[in-house]
């Protein structure tokens, strides 16, 4: 059980908390402390809106441990509206054909359908087709 590793990531996982570069205003996710655009220090926290669009997608049938009971599932790279790309699963897709460019929004879901009922449940971001309201 990787307890501290998942615990440390809770802000990123639950709320897409990344960073903003004070020098060039670049938004950074995942957080990396050094701005990938200008190379200056970027340690100011920034919460992403969770809105974005599908950059690329595919389906996993042959999965690693922790995911093998959830197959098939859709994996994607999502382009967040603030700029960065993020790797995440798409969810709630039934009847929706996934397309590159499809608008999606962040939801918090179980990341691992752990086969082991004794282990901790890992929650984190996934994306679903935008719901109208």
């Amino acid at each position: 059980m990787d307890i501290p590793r998942h615990w440390r990531l809770r802000k990123q996982r639950y709320g897409l908390v990344g960073e903003v570069c004070e020098h060039c205003d670049s938004k950074v996710f995942p957080p990396r402390d050094i701005c990938p655009d200008c190379g200056e220090e970027a340690k100011t926290l920034f919460s992403f809106s969770g809105k974005g669009e599908v950059y690329s997608h595919s389906t996993v049938y042959d999965a690693p441990k922790g995911f093998d009971e959830s197959t098939p599932y859709t994996i994607a790279m999502v382009k967040l509206e603030e700029g960065p790309l993020v790797t995440a699963q798409l969810t709630d897709l039934q009847e929706k054909e996934v397309k590159i460019g499809m608008p999606v929004e962040m939801v918090t879901r179980k990341l691992r359908e752990a086969g082991d009922e004794r282990s901790m449940i890992v929650y984190g971001y996934k994306f679903r087709p935008v719901m109208s309201h």
């Binding site: 690693p64 994996i75 994607a76």
Partner: peptide, 21 residues
């Protein structure tokens, strides 16, 4: 591992993402 594998990405599905794009 924290930002790709923990989300269910595998090297093979990553290659699929590249190919799709």
């Amino acid at each position: 591992s924290e930002y790709e594998a923990d989300h269910g990405l595998t090297p093979t599905s990553q290659a699929a993402l590249l190919m799709k794009r």
